[in-house]
Design a protein around this nucleic acid. Structure first.
Lengths: 206, 206
DNA sequence: GTTTTTGCACTGACCAGTCAGTTCAAAAAT
DNA sequence: ATTTTTGAACTGACTGGTCAGTGCAAAAAC
């Protein structure tokens, strides 16, 4: 009764892995169920034994991804708080966690980005939830930073959170696509500089 | 020879407009040629009279979009230079131009984003060109800024350009999707603050 | 009279989803 | 211990529908 449910679990995992790369490469509708089954090394019927439909498989895949991302961001924020870091440090830690996540799950990220701002989609609500949960962690940190007078009072919290999210997202995707040989530290340092406003003006450094 | 090509031109324009919204909403492969023709108010045969295939229609649409964006960014940079603005001002003007573009052509933007980091696509090279041309304008401005000692020497030019691009892109898409009632000025002000490093620390303002 | 558009029937490939049948390990019966 | 039964997991050929692209004669626009 345990070994059997483990077998199912393993099959579902294989299907997730096959689906995520194929859909990231080709998009949802041009990826066929036959392809997913083939790459997972499984018969087509198995896909339908494990998931009600192609759409449901995709939705469960997305939901599975949320856990990974939110947990990652939240852990970064919490660990920073425990070690007594400032709120700016927390943002920095979250940038790092974001980069880390994207480099670990590039296909998943690609796939989110491709679908995130599409309207008229069955899974739109699932995606809004992903975005909302990620952004909420950033917003919370910005709010605390403002309360602690670490950050300017007149920043626009939701918009700044979006912008930071976008900064990390696009920089990381470009990193993966066009300069994959660079180290995470390197990329992180560049974004850190931007985040901390050390880009404008040699004033501070000279 | 001119009036006839004008009629064709008008038909092509209608097809572009129909295609861009449909594809932004549904994606390329789930948008049918019949739908595009119907929304454009044109017979299916006309689509094939004007474009060799569905894919070609899409590729020409993308290429048409490049002109709009690059021209817009370049104009912003040039106008700033003419009025004797600093390089930081130029970046600011480009952020504004970016926001302006995205609010004017939201579907086009959505569609680019959805396809930009996909691999294995017929039109991947076209998309890389879009990205490259947009980023190049930003990079050029960053480089000049460094040369003029307006910006720190140790910024990572390509990565910073990517990050700025992403910042504007994501903030603007979120603005359009979730807070469309806000004014461009408002959004621009928030991003400007982030760009100029006035987020971290009430120090500068207090 | 040439270019462009229309309307519509048709084809062939492709693909999501189905279903009758197979496999096999573990439980039950003997 | 051996045989039988059970049922969850899996298989792959098949079906019904969808859609890109074609062909073409007639109409409309220029």
């Amino acid at each position: 009764m345990d070994s059997s449910s483990t077998r199912r679990q393993a099959t579902r995992q294989k299907l997730f892995e096959a689906a995520v790369t194929l859909i990231a490469e080709q998009g949802f509708s041009s990826t066929t169920v036959d392809e997913i089954a083939e790459r997972a090394g499984v018969a087509k019927g198995t896909v339908y034994y494990n998931f009600a439909s192609k759409t449901v498989l995709f939705e469960e895949l997305l939901r599975h991804g949320i856990e990974l991302l939110t947990a990652s961001l939240q852990t970064a924020a919490d660990e920073n708080a425990e070690r007594g870091g400032s709120h700016v440090d927390a943002l920095d830690a979250m940038v790092r966690a974001g980069l880390d996540f994207i480099s670990r799950y590039p296909s998943l990220t690609q796939l989110y980005v491709a679908e995130l701002w599409r309207t008229n989609r069955a899974w739109q609500s699932t995606l809004m939830m992903v975005r909302q949960r990620a952004i909420a962690v950033i917003e919370a940190e910005l709010r605390s930073g403002v309360a602690a007078h670490e950050l300017s009072e007149d920043i626009d919290i939701p918009l700044t959170a979006s912008a930071l999210f976008g900064m990390v997202l696009v920089a990381a995707l470009d990193w993966q696509s066009y300069q994959p040989e660079r180290s995470l530290e390197d990329v992180h340092a560049a974004l850190s500089r931007l985040l901390q406003g050390r880009v404008g003006g040699t004033v501070a450094s000279g």
